[in-house]
C-alpha cells in the first residue's frame, strides 16, 4: 500500500475495509504541508474541547478510585486483545472512562459500577473505532455478569454524561507525524514506533487522561522513544523545529516526558512473572494495588510483543 495515500488526510481519505488498517506503515513518509495543517487542526480541536488541563500531579484523586481504575484498565487491555481491537480503541475507551469520572461521582466502594463503566466505555469505543463490533455478550467482566440491557443502560449514561461528544483525539493519530518531524530519517523505524506506543499504553494505565493533552502525550512518547536522556534544554531544542506544535506548552511536554520516563522506570524495576493469567483476578475488588500492578504489567507485556503492538496502531 502506498503510504503517501494514507497520509493524505486533508482529502478525507476513507478506507472501506480492514486490509490497510492491519498493515504497518513502517516507512514514515515525508509529510507535506497538508499534514501540518491537519495536525494543527487536531491540536486546535483539543484546545477547544476544554477537556484537558495540564495538571501533572494526580495525587488528589481518591485512592480507591485509582485502584478500581487500574482494575478496569487491565480488563480493558486484556479484552482488547481477546476481541482483537486496536490499541487506539482501548486508549479511547480510557478517555471516555476518565471523562465520565471527571463529570460524575461514583460512590466509594462501588467497584461494580466502575467495572460496568469500563465495559460500557470499551463497547462505545469499539463502536467508534472498529470495523466489526461484537455483541455485548462478548464483554465478560470477571466476577460480575452484566446483562446486555444493563450494559446498554450504562452506555446511554456514558453517552449522556459525555454529551455525545465521542469524537476524541488519541495520541496515536499524531505518532507518525511527530516521528517524521523529531527523529532522524534513518533512525525512525518500527522498533521506535512500537516503543512509543508502549510508553503511551503504560502511561494510560497510571494517569488520569484528562490531565494530559493527547498531542502532548504523543510528543513526549516520541521524544522518550528516541532518547531517554533529554534535559529540559535539549528537549526544547528538539521540539523547537516542529512548527505544528508551537502552540503546546513546553513545560507540559517536559513534565509529561518525565512522567512517561518515571512510569517506565517503575515498570522495569518490577520482577517478571510468567505465570500470571491476564484473564483472572482482574475484578477482585480487594486486590492489593501494588502487587497487582507488577503482575499485570508483565502479563500485558508478554501478551503484546513488540511486533504485535506495531501492527495494530
Amino acid at each position: 500500500m502506498n503510504s503517501d495515500a494514507t497520509f493524505s488526510l486533508p482529502n478525507l481519505l476513507c478506507e472501506e475495509d480492514d486490509s490497510s488498517l492491519t498493515e504497518v506503515k513502517t516507512k514514515v513518509s515525508q509529510p507535506g504541508s497538508d499534514d501540518d495543517q491537519y495536525i494543527r487542526s487536531l491540536i486546535e480541536r483539543e484546545a477547544e474541547s476544554n477537556d484537558y488541563v495540564c495538571v501533572c500531579d494526580d495525587e488528589d484523586s481518591e485512592n480507591w478510585l485509582k485502584c478500581a481504575r487500574l482494575d478496569a484498565v487491565n480488563w480493558i487491555f486484556s479484552t482488547r486483545e481477546i476481541l482483537g481491537f486496536h490499541f487506539r480503541t482501548a486508549y479511547l475507551s480510557l478517555t471516555y472512562f476518565d471523562r465520565f469520572n471527571s463529570k460524575r461521582a461514583i460512590d466509594n466502594g462501588k467497584e461494580w459500577a466502575i467495572q460496568l463503566l469500563g465495559v460500557a466505555c470499551l463497547s462505545l469505543a469499539a463502536k467508534m473505532e472498529e470495523q466489526t463490533v461484537p455483541s455485548l455478550y462478548h464483554y465478560r467482566a470477571q466476577g460480575y455478569n452484566f446483562e446486555s440491557s444493563v450494559i446498554q443502560r450504562m452506555e446511554l449514561m456514558v453517552l449522556a454524561t459525555l454529551e455525545w461528544k465521542l469524537y476524541c483525539i488519541t495520541p496515536f493519530v499524531y505518532l507518525h507525524h511527530f516521528f517524521s518531524k523529531i527523529c532522524d530519517e534513518h533512525n525512525c523505524n518500527e522498533f521506535l514506533i512500537s516503543k512509543a506506543i508502549r510508553h503511551i499504553l503504560d502511561f494510560s494505565k497510571e494517569v488520569n487522561l484528562m490531565d494530559h493533552r493527547p498531542s502532548v502525550v504523543a510528543v513526549a512518547a516520541v521524544l522518550l522513544a528516541c532518547d531517554d536522556q533529554l534535559t529540559r534544554n535539549t528537549l526544547e531544542f528538539k521540539i523547537g523545529v516542529v512548527t505544528s506544535i508551537h502552540s503546546l506548552e513546553k513545560e507540559c511536554i517536559y513534565q509529561c516526558y518525565n512522567l512517561l520516563k518515571k512510569t517506565e522506570t517503575k515498570k522495569n524495576n518490577t520482577p517478571e512473572s510468567n505465570s500470571f493469567d491476564l484473564l483472572s483476578n482482574h475484578w477482585s475488588p480487594s486486590s492489593n494495588i501494588g502487587v497487582k500492578r507488577k503482575l499485570t504489567y508483565n502479563g500485558f507485556e508478554q501478551k503484546c510483543p513488540l511486533q504485535k503492538i506495531s501492527r495494530r496502531l
Binding site: L136, S148, Q152, L159, W164, L166
Partner: peptide
C-alpha cells in the same frame, strides 16, 4: 437485543 446502543446512532449524533 444484545447489541447495545446502535453504532449508527452514536456516530450520527456524535
Amino acid at each position: 437485543d444484545g447489541d447495545g446502543v446502535s453504532p449508527t446512532a452514536i456516530r450520527e449524533i456524535m
